[in-house]
């Protein structure tokens, strides 16, 4: 192999704040230093990401952590084992509700910035009142069945005794449709990553009762997925890719780079959202209601070196949630725990 030829990798991503490390690796010249050339391809659905990775259109991809586990359990389109050599950060999700639902929750004790349990109990109270009045069940959306968004929403509901499968309607909607669905009353709330919560708040018709870092501190979120076979046959490239993400993580975690990162990601070919909203999320100044000052959650979304390392407990934790959501059969207790 000639020394000057760079290994070209096609990497799929979704236009979300947490594609940051891939964009940094590409734009800040980190990939080049590691002998890689990244071709970043923006996708429109998680299902496309998964399938295009499996058929070889992509060498690697920005994926929801539970998707990789689901694929390996046979819940994908292809029987193609995947591997996630490195994670792409932690956290970044929030739950947004319509202003109308928020008003009802506030009447039941919800408060801006209150802990998730207080907000969940208020929601439970709203649901009880709606049931008593013979009103229809609330509709809550998330972005993919195998996602932390789904499990975070379910955990939050269950904390106040709300049954996610009976007391509300849980639906999947793609992020670009969520804000409109909230405005038109098609959904009453959703759990999604940035910039979509902030966009709903900024537009004035969404309020964020829960930032998910209050629910699960530094939760697993996105990972870099690869076909296991490709990864095993190209150990050198995988190592370079991991070094790449490590270097990108140091850059992205440096507060001095947050303005630049927000600007970079705001471009239409990446996230295509206002840089000021992306920046607020990066620094953890979350505006949860357009009429109130922002709340501070420094660990809302994290890209530091600790946030890209896999933790076996994360996998177990996700698997447990998949089982509780009825997506996979019960797992026998492992002796290696």
């Amino acid at each position: 192999m000639s020394t000057d030829s760079r290994v070209e990798l096609t990497v799929g991503f979704m236009p979300l704040l947490d594609c940051a490390l891939l964009v940094v690796a590409h734009e800040v010249g980190i990939a080049r230093q590691q002998g890689l050339s990244l071709r970043l391809v923006r996708e429109t659905s998680w299902a496309n990401i998964r399938d295009r990775l499996a058929v070889g259109h992509f060498d690697a991809a920005h994926m929801l952590a539970p998707m990789v586990i689901a694929q390996n359990l046979g819940a994908g389109l292809f029987d193609t084992p995947l591997l996630a050599p490195v994670a792409l950060g932690t956290g970044g999700n929030a739950i947004t509700v319509s202003r109308e639902l928020w008003k009802a929750m506030r009447d039941s004790g919800a408060m801006i910035g209150a802990e998730p349990l207080v907000q969940a109990r208020a929601l439970a109270d709203v649901i009880a009142r709606r049931n008593a009045a013979g009103q229809s069940a609330l509709t809550l959306a998330m972005v993919f069945p195998f996602s932390c968004h789904n499990y975070q929403l379910r955990d939050w509901l269950q904390s106040a005794g709300i049954d996610p499968d009976r007391d509300v309607r849980l639906v999947v909607l793609p992020p670009p449709l969520l804000v409109d669905a909230l405005r038109s009353g098609q959904v009453d709330g959703f759990c999604v990553g940035e910039p979509w919560n902030s966009l709903a708040v900024d537009a004035g018709f969404g309020v964020i009762p829960v930032v998910c870092s209050d629910l699960w501190p530094r939760p697993p979120e996105k990972v870099l997925g690869m076909r296991a076979q490709l990864a095993e046959e190209n150990a050198e490239t995988v190592a370079a890719l991991i070094r790449c993400i490590q270097a990108a993580s140091l850059w992205a975690a440096d507060a001095g780079n947050h303005q630049d990162l927000a600007k970079l990601l705001s471009q239409p070919r990446y996230v295509g959202a206002p840089a000021r909203l992306l920046h607020s999320a990066l620094v953890g100044e979350i505006r949860v209601d357009a009429q109130e000052p922002p709340i501070r959650r420094p660990e809302f979304i994290c890209f530091g070196p600790d946030d890209i390392v896999h933790d076996e407990r994360h996998a177990r934790f996700l698997l447990d949630h998949m089982r509780r959501a009825g997506q996979v059969p019960a797992i026998p207790a492992s002796s290696s725990k």
Binding site: S45, A47, N48, A75, A325
Partner: peptide
Amino acid sequence: LENPNRDVLEQMFQVSRVVRKPVAMFVDR
């Protein structure tokens, strides 16, 4: 595949209780 609604379909495999006829991804994987 340009349609972001593809992810909406993915839910059908998870909530078979809602769907009378569960839908499989493809005929034969």
